[in-house]
């Protein structure tokens, strides 16, 4: 009994070390929890990439949409692009692009070269909308419901694995409800 008390802090210390060590592997530290899930998509007035027409945030309303933050300087975005094309083809889901801190000319060339999965693309040339969305890199993908509420945020590329594991259940719950 006394022995147990004597070793208690040591055991506690070992337990803490174990917990902290496990913490290294729990999640990628570059994946930050989103503060924005459940919040309204922020307001914006920004031009569309090809038409140049100024869009407001009400253009997002009325439909469940994927909002995908991308840029031509982002290699992962290119990798992700084919997945987005597939998703668009297979599901018909509305995908909206946010061209983040990019050159408009390069972005248009990219879309004509690799295909355009987006209903429209919002140009966020100086990253202000990115700040409102808490974006810290590209690609990032949000699920926004028909009322313009952010339901999910994913940092990094969309691929078959996380699409089936994370996106689909949320999309299913949104369409059922």
């Amino acid at each position: 009994m006394k022995r147990a008390v004597f070793f208690a802090p040591f055991i506690g210390f070992i337990a803490l070390v174990a917990i902290l060590y496990a913490g290294f592997h729990l999640n990628d530290p570059s994946h930050l929890p989103s503060a924005l899930v459940g919040q309204r998509f922020p307001g914006f007035e920004l031009p569309e990439l090809t038409s140049g027409k100024v869009l407001g945030h009400q253009t997002l309303l009325g439909e469940i949409r994927l909002v995908n933050v991308w840029a031509t300087w982002c290699p992962t975005c290119l990798h992700e692009h084919t997945t987005l094309m597939d998703i668009r083809r297979a599901t018909g889901l509305s995908i909206v692009g946010i061209n983040y801190r990019d050159d408009g000319e390069k972005a248009r060339r990219w879309l004509s070269l690799y295909g355009d999965p987006y209903d429209f693309t919002i140009v966020d040339a100086n990253g202000d909308l990115g700040v409102e969305l808490g974006v810290y890199g590209a690609p990032e993908t949000f699920i926004v419901d028909a009322d313009g509420i952010i339901r999910f945020r994913h940092v990094g590329d969309v691929n078959d694995g996380n699409w089936n594991r994370e996106f689909l259940p949320i999309l299913d719950s949104l369409t059922d409800g």
């Binding site: 930050l32 929890p33 503060a35 924005l36 700040v131």
Partner: peptide, 8 residues
């Protein structure tokens, strides 16, 4: 900033 980027 916290509302957009979280506690991080």
């Amino acid at each position: 900033l916290q509302a957009r980027y979280g506690d991080f």
